[in-house]
Every structure is written in C-alpha cells, then in structure tokens.
Design a protein around this nucleic acid. Sequence first.
DNA 1: ATATTTTTAGAATTAAAATTCCATATTGAC
DNA 2: GTCAATATGGAATTTTAATTCTAAAAATAT
Lengths: 285, 285
Amino acid sequence: MQNETKTKLDKPARDFDTLREQIASSYDGLSNRLKLIADYALREPSALALHTGAMLGDEIGVAPSAIIRFAQHFGYSGFSEMQSVFRAELQASSTPYQDRIKNLEHSGAARDTAEMTDRFVEAGIASLHELQRTTPVEKIEAAARLLADARIVHVLAQKRTFTAATYLAYNLARLEVPANLLDGIGGTLEQQMAMVGPDDVVIAISFHPCAEETVRAFERACATGARTIAITDLAHTPFTNADIWFQITEASVDGFRSLNATISLALILAIRAGTLSAEQNSTKT
Amino acid sequence: MQNETKTKLDKPARDFDTLREQIASSYDGLSNRLKLIADYALREPSALALHTGAMLGDEIGVAPSAIIRFAQHFGYSGFSEMQSVFRAELQASSTPYQDRIKNLEHSGAARDTAEMTDRFVEAGIASLHELQRTTPVEKIEAAARLLADARIVHVLAQKRTFTAATYLAYNLARLEVPANLLDGIGGTLEQQMAMVGPDDVVIAISFHPCAEETVRAFERACATGARTIAITDLAHTPFTNADIWFQITEASVDGFRSLNATISLALILAIRAGTLSAEQNSTKT
DNA sequence: ATATTTTTAGAATTAAAATTCCATATTGAC
DNA sequence: GTCAATATGGAATTTTAATTCTAAAAATAT
C-alpha cells in the first residue's frame, strides 16, 4: 500500500470542494468506467449523496463495484466513506440560513451595543433569507386571493405579534382591502369576533408562547365558516388546520426574536391582495 | 389493518409538504415519543433524510423502533419508505432555482409574486445594512440612557410608523421600562399628551409624509421640557431639534417602504434601555 | 501476434441497517 | 388502588447494501 506511481491518493478529501477539485484534475488519468462515474459525480452530486451504490451503478451504467473502485481511487476505504462527504455537502448547502439562525441563538449574550447591533442585523438578514427560501409562492398567491375575495379581513394577534397585525391591517386598508384589526381592546375580543361572518377571512398571527385569547378566537372563527389563514412559528393546533398556514422562522438574539420576516410577509400579502382586489374591481365595472 | 379509530393514516403522503401538514395537524394526538420525533422531523428535515434510524434515535433520545413506529403511524411501511420522502425533498431543495423557474414559467401572477418577494427580501437586507452602517453606537447608547432614566417613556407615532411604535412600547414594557403608547385613539392625542411631564421622554417615529398630529404633539412635548428622541427618514423640523435624532433609510419596492430597519432599531433601543434600567435598579437597592 | 498488465462485471461474502416481536413500563379509566 | 389499554425499549431476525474476490475481457507493450 505504498505510494503509487498513478494518481491514486492515500489521504481522502474531507470536504466537498477539495474532492471536486481532485475529481476534475485527475479526470484524464481515469479509466473508462471511472470517467463515467466522475462525470456523474460532478453533474449530480446530490444523487451521490442520496442513492445506494447499486442505484448509482444502474443510473451511470456501470457495475456497483466500479463505484467502490472509484471511491478507493480517491483514497477512501469504500463508497460509504466517500458518500459521507457528498452528504455533508448536501446538508450544508440546503440549510445555510437555518444554521446561522441556530448559531445566533446559541452564542452567548451580546457584550455591548455594537455587537448587539451586528447580531440583530445578521438575525434580520437570516430571517429574511429563510422566509424567501421556505415560503412557496403558491401559498402567498392563494392567501392573497382569499384576502382579496373576502367581505372583510379580520386580523387577529396579541402581545408580541400585535405589531405585525397593525402593519398588515394598515397596509390592507391602504390598498382598499377592507381590514379590521381584532385588537381585543378593553377585553372586547369576544364582541369583536361577533362581526366575523362566513364570507370573511380571519388571519391570525401567533408566536410561541401563543396567547390563549388568540387560540380561542381562532377556533371560534373556524366555527363561523370563515376562511382562515395562520402565521405561526411552531406547528400548533388549531393554527395548522387553517386553510392556509405559513410557518415562519425568525432568528432571535439573547432570546429576543426579530419580526423582520413576519412584517415582510405581511407587506407582501397586503400588496398582492391589493393588486388582485383592484384587478377584480376594474373588470367588474 | 382496517381503518383505525385513531389518527393513523393508511395512505402515506408522497410529497413533503403533505407529510409536514399531516405531522403538524396530528401532533396533539401523538404519544410522547412520537411528539419528540415530530418536533425533530419538522425542525431538522435534512437529518431525517440523511441519518439512519439508529443515529436519529440517539439524536432525538428515543429507541430506533420508535422511529419506525412514527413512520408507520403516518401510513408508511417503515422508516425507509418515509425517509425517501425526506430525501426527495432535500434533493429538490438543493436545486432551489429549478422550483422558482418552474413557477415563473407557469403563472404570470406567481412570477410577479416571486419577483416581489425577492425584491422585498433584498430591500429589507439593504435597509438593515444601512442601519448598521449609518447608526453610531454612541447615539444608541445615549438614547438608551435617556429611555432608562425616564419617569415614563411616551412613544408617539401615527399611521405607517404606528407599527414600529407598538413594537417599541411592547418591548420597553416587557423589560420593565415604563412605556406609554400615544396612539391618539379616538382623537384623544391632546389629552394623552397632557400626562407628559418634564422628567419624561417622548420618542417620536415619523416617516414622510409625516402626520400633522405627530408634528404638533412633538412640538408640544418639547415645550413641556421633556427629553425628546426622534426617528425619521427625512431631515424635517421639528424632529431634527430632538435631543437625539436617528435618521433611518428604508429601502422601498414599488413605493412600499419596508420597516425592517425601524423595528430593528426599536428592539435594540428597548433591550439596551432595559439593560441599563435593570443595572440602575440593582445598584440602587 | 503474443505476453503482460490493467480493467471490468458479477458472484460470494461481510457488514450494517431496518424491521419485527415481545417483555416491561407507563398511562388512563373506573 | 386495580385493571386494561397503550406505549416503549431492546433483543432477535430479516432485509438490504457495501465490500471483497475472482475469472474473464480489454488494452498495452514488445
């Protein structure tokens, strides 16, 4: 097992970029079958990460043992060891902002104002990226259509998320979508809920720990036959049973969660609903 | 194997979104161990895709067989079958632009929405960077000290910026800094202003075009001898005469200005004020 | 053209993971 | 508090995948 005269390596690459380099640069010295595998590995790295040796053999058109020889050529003990590099890369590339969000939460308390500002800026950016990555356009479209078609849109939120509710209600109203803020002022949430009808939409915003009033009001809204939309951070009944449910991941710093993703989603929903509503009114006349 | 009375499903979800919905909505009916697994599956889907049953068992703190029971609860024959759903999702999400391109091709509305989402995310990020770049730490420190020393902090805002005011007031109150939201409800801003005293701080948030009421109320606050803080987008009297004046630049999309920088600044001010206030109280006693 | 080396496919083997099953523990009803 | 029902962990088993090995096929050199 001493040094080969060929390009065979004895110290396998531990990270994906290095491995890709090695595959590309030693390509010319590979045998026929190994070239086929190299092509495929560079073109479909996620298949290398997720499929078995036998599956890859079928896909590429080589024997499973060729896959193992390929891995061993690059210094790995076998296919499994090489695959772990592809898997690590896939996992890392799929959750770049989630990782940052987690790191923010787990790093200790900010020492001073400057550091705190930096961390909040970073947290806000990570939240916005995560919003972009995880929120399907179709869901936004569907929600906006519900909002645009509603007789009245009731926005339901308490405590922390009340801020986002004011923003959503304000922007909806500004775009001439009839909006009503269920603020429960003076404990009158019950009475306010009485005006929710079956042609209305109730959109609830609730973050953990969710306010009991919001939960009860939302359940009541479902019972009235109104369409429902929920924006929450965790999967929690009854919100997950809404007609449309958005799950939001906000980064937090020192236990303080930002609201960047939530208010951005609120604004996008309002604008889209306003656009659809305006289109309907113009075709109607 | 006939229909169960419980929530057990006999037709397993083939796509990830459906599965996630099912996990979320049946969460409450799950047993302890299955809840743990459900949490983890929603939080770390890529681990479900890439790790073995035994590894997941270790990570979650349950027996490997519990993982299989979890999969079977959702109608799969076993863990392997469920894992293929997670793997498919991971592979799909590793090529994020494919999805987006598909949407762009199929629907004009979705195209607009996707593009708008991108632009709002970008605008939000730009606003946060600008906040970080242009806001001196000393100014934040000085403002936080004023807030911490105040008898009462009055938060003054109308219309668009009212959202940010609710957020600032909520977080100040949560951190035990006495905060009062001057919401001008029922046109009572005049009366609300009457409780502003010389030991108080009035913090106004106003963006162009600024509400007349906010301007008048702020002038009156200055006259009472209260300390003043202003957060505005343009240099506009009387706000530039405040003891501390923050100028915020929010990026806008199609004339809709985001609030990302403003609410982030509000949160930072609240936390910093809360910290200073707590330090004072502890040294006082 | 022949001998030698390298490459290859597929069978045999080994290793690992998934699944089943059962004894025990826990929970909930009465 | 007792009993029944359900949930749980872990050992035993089955299944599947990875790896090794060998004989045959190509490729190369002489």
